[in-house]
Write a protein that binds this DNA or RNA. Sequence first.
RNA 1: GCCUUUGUAGCUCAGUCGGUAGAGCAAGGGACUGAAAAUCCCUGUGUCGGCGGUUCGAUUCCACCCGAAGGCA
Length: 313
Amino acid sequence: MDKTPIIVISGPTASGKTSLSIDIAKEYNAEIVSADSMQIYKHLDIGTAKPDMKERDGIIHHMIDIIDPDENFSVAEYVEMAHDIIKDIREKNKNAVIVGGTGLYINSLVDDIDFRKDDSDENLREELNKICEEKGIDYLWKMLEKIDPVSAQRLHKNNTRRIIRAIEFYKMTGIPISKHQEETKKKVSRYDPCMIAIKWDMDKLYERIEKRVDIMIKNGLENEVRNLCEKGYTKSMLSMQGIGYKEMTDYIYGSCSLEEAVEKIKIGTRHYAKRQMTWFRRDNRIHWIDYRENILERATEILKENGYKTNNT
RNA sequence: GCCUUUGUAGCUCAGUCGGUAGAGCAAGGGACUGAAAAUCCCUGUGUCGGCGGUUCGAUUCCACCCGAAGGCA
């Protein structure tokens, strides 16, 4: 079976993914599929650095603004929708450019990981959370050790979230999540990705983050979050836990000053960029482009080596 | 000018009844298969402001100097 070629642009925040992706989309007759866990939300624009229509410059963007801020979303849904979109794009004889910084989304899509329909249940998860509060995480960890010792060994006892997910998976499917993970690793992906990312010196990247956050403030992040709060969206929602949103909410409700909130946004974004780097660093399929190079030119070379042709060639 | 408080890790500060020091934050590294902008793990030597004195030994006590904050003139 022929694999579907896809162009993937990943990397840390503020590395220049968006503008590179649009340039590439123009040259390669492509549509863009975002892989960003926050840009999927409507009304979260400034803080997520969502490209506006002018920036998109006529290029079709998918997986942006697809749900309301009070809705939950997950990788499983992401992957399911993205597969269909890519299929449609290909049927139009266009290229698909996947762009985003959410490593889990990128890898789940590119590696074509299976998410079963029946292995998740929010009520059960809530129930387990309650048990954790009452009896402590040790109790849950021991429970997991009995049903899935492999996962129990792998998971640190403080990582409540993952422990609960592992138990949840077993209760829903009757098989240990560790076993499921091993099986899905063997699966051959339907995609043939050409992966590109822009590499920055961290201090340079941090400078960009600093500037970018200042611009967000200038562009009215406070107002954006105020509107969200007025619409009734609260910090308990996933969307409002995004960097920039949770800190601004704290400021709006008076638990810190604006300066403190801005500083926290900068720190949070730095931490995020660092985590993204540890995620992407280990993927040896990625072609890293140094920020000092002519990025589009270099990307074009890489794509050419991988059999992609521009509109002009 | 005098009095008081203060000077310890990039920052905020503990501490050593004299045996050369430790937290939080920052920073660095790592993990990651249905919350992932989330969640979690690992990493702490720094002229203890300067110069002397006492002492076997001073960051700790004493004197002086320099810097900071406050008070009195």
